[in-house]
């Protein structure tokens, strides 16, 4: 045993040392426990399914969309702006420059153009989820990429990573209609997200879970947007039901920027609106309008680019 200066022996573990060690141990355990709690809590909240499984079994939905470009004329025949985008804006109270589903006009090889309604591709190898530093955006087991705006720090790395430019930032306080205040925030509809966070198409997860079609599919006057489940192998545009796998194969479906390896869940059937009588040389879209009053108090609206 060690000796004190006066020659008396003292215990190998003095009370002081013991208290110190015990204190450090308790502190260490608390920190470790807290860390473990956070880690496990995250794992739980991020593996939750958003939709009930198929039938009474355990099989989960695998949501996907098919957009039949043969039936999309950019709402030229209806003489309106693209109805899918407008319905989405109204349904989700999107502030001015946001179009979660946006109709882009692509050049065709033989001249003329075709319209491509472009929602979030709900990639299965999502670049945005891969880069998020705080797991504020994640893939649900059903394959939908959602954003939790209560956690998002607004670094916009996901926006830089998205090769489809389908993520939008709340640059300021958006003007919202009064009815938006009645909705409690949830990542499945994102209504009530604070400024400084990222938003994007959520495949209307709150509606599909109760068997309703998303706003865009409901609004399409030509029923060009099919919404389906790869697990049950069915898709519907609200009028017809198709067998998803054969519908894709038989019509030569493709996915946007497939070579990037993002594995999107949105499929396109090639075409330029011929099934609804559009000529590829009828160019131009009517611009989308946002119905919200721009003078909402405290609201700061913005445009696409700074000029």
């Amino acid at each position: 045993m060690p000796e004190n200066n006066d020659g008396t022996t003292r215990p190998a573990l003095s009370r002081r040392t013991f208290l110190k060690l015990a204190g450090a141990g308790v502190l260490g355990l608390t920190v470790a426990g807290q860390g473990l709690r956070i880690l496990t809590a995250r794992a739980e909240s991020r593996t939750e399914a958003t939709t009930a499984p198929i039938g009474k079994g355990k099989r989960l939905r695998r949501w996907s969309a098919v957009i039949d470009l043969r039936r999309c004329d950019g709402c030229q025949s209806a003489g309106t702006a693209p109805q899918c985008a407008e319905a989405c804006i109204r349904g989700r109270f999107l502030p001015e420059p946001m179009q979660w589903i946006e109709v882009y006009e692509h050049e065709l090889p033989g001249g003329g153009t075709r319209f491509m309604p472009t929602p979030c591709m709900q990639c299965q190898n999502p670049p945005c989820v891969n880069v998020c530093p705080v797991a504020a955006t994640w893939s649900t087991p059903e394959g939908i990429v959602l954003i939790d705006q209560r956690r998002c720090i607004g670094c916009r790395l996901c926006m830089a990573a998205c090769p489809y430019e389908r993520r939008f930032f709340l640059w300021g306080d958006p003007p919202l209609p009064p009815e938006a205040a009645l909705v409690d925030y949830s990542p499945v509809h994102q209504i009530g997200a604070p400024k400084g966070t990222v938003m994007k198409c959520d495949f209307c997860t709150d509606m599909t879970s109760s068997g309703r079609l998303p706003y865009c599919a409901q609004a399409c006057p030509n029923n060009a947007i099919y919404f389906g489940d790869l697990e049950e192998d069915l898709a519907t545009n609200g009028r017809n039901v198709v067998m998803l796998s054969s519908f894709l194969s038989n019509n030569g479906a493709f996915r946007s920027k497939e070579d990037l390896g993002t594995k999107p869940r949105v499929y396109y059937i090639p075409g330029q609106g011929q099934d609804v009588g559009r000529s590829p040389f009828t160019k131009g879209l009517k611009p989308v309008e946002w119905p919200w009053d721009k003078t909402t108090e405290g609201a700061k609206t913005w445009k696409r680019s700074s000029r």
């Binding site: 956070i38 995250r42 891969n130 880069v131 998020c132 530093p133 705080v134 797991a135 504020a136 956690r151 998002c152 720090i153 607004g154 670094c155 916009r156 790395l157 930032f169 709340l170 604070p194 400024k195 400084g196 966070t197 990222v198």
Partner: peptide, 24 residues
């Protein structure tokens, strides 16, 4: 980085919820 963040008050999320897979 802090100036660039949309939600600078949530900086602590980087440590609480940090994903080791993210470049950030």
């Amino acid at each position: 980085i802090l100036l660039d963040m949309g939600q600078p008050t949530r900086l602590s999320n980087l440590f609480i919820f940090g994903r080791w897979q993210s470049p950030l």
